[in-house]
Simulated scan of single mutants.
Amino acid sequence: MAEKRNIFLIGPMGAGKSTIGRQLASQLHLDFIDSDHEIERRTGADISWVFDVEGEAGFRVREAEVIDDLTQEQGIVLATGGGSILSKESRNYLSARGVVVYLETTIDKQLVRTSRDKRRPLLQTEEPRDVLETLADSRNPLYEEIADFTVKTDEQSAKIVANQIIKLLDF
Rank of each mutant, 00 (worst) to 15 (best):
A136C: 08
Q110H: 05
R60M: 06
R60D: 05
V50I: 12
A25P: 05
K88G: 13
I20A: 10
I47F: 13
Q72A: 07
A57P: 03
S26D: 12
E133G: 04
G81P: 02
F59D: 03
E127H: 13
E155L: 12
V50A: 04
S18C: 09
D154N: 11
I76E: 04
V66L: 07
L94M: 15
A2V: 10
F171M: 08
I76W: 06
K4M: 15
Q74H: 09
H37R: 09
E3Y: 12
D117W: 11
R120P: 05
L111C: 00
L169K: 08
S87T: 03
V131Q: 05
P128N: 01
K118I: 14
F149P: 03
E133L: 03
S26L: 12
R120V: 04
G16C: 06
S138C: 11
V112W: 09
E40M: 09
R97E: 12
R129N: 02
P12Q: 08
E127T: 13
D137V: 14
P121M: 05
T125N: 12
W49Y: 12
T125D: 10
D31F: 15
D68E: 15
E63T: 08
V151F: 11
E126F: 06
A147L: 10
D34V: 08
Q72E: 02
E126H: 14
V100W: 10
Q74K: 15
F32P: 01
S157C: 12
P121F: 14
R97T: 06
L94D: 00
R5E: 11
A64N: 10
E65I: 04
M13K: 00
N163F: 15
I20Q: 01
E63I: 09
N140V: 13
E127Y: 10
R42Y: 11
S26H: 14
Y143E: 04
T153W: 04
G83H: 14
F59P: 12
E73M: 13
L111H: 00
G11E: 04
V50F: 13
H37C: 02
M13G: 06
L103G: 08
F171K: 13
V161Y: 04
L135Y: 03
L78T: 09
V77H: 01
A158N: 02
G82H: 11
V161M: 03
D68Y: 09
L111R: 00
D46L: 12
V61Q: 07
S115G: 04
L86I: 06
T19E: 11
E73S: 14
A79Y: 01
I76Q: 04
Q156H: 13
D69I: 07
G82N: 06
V50Y: 07
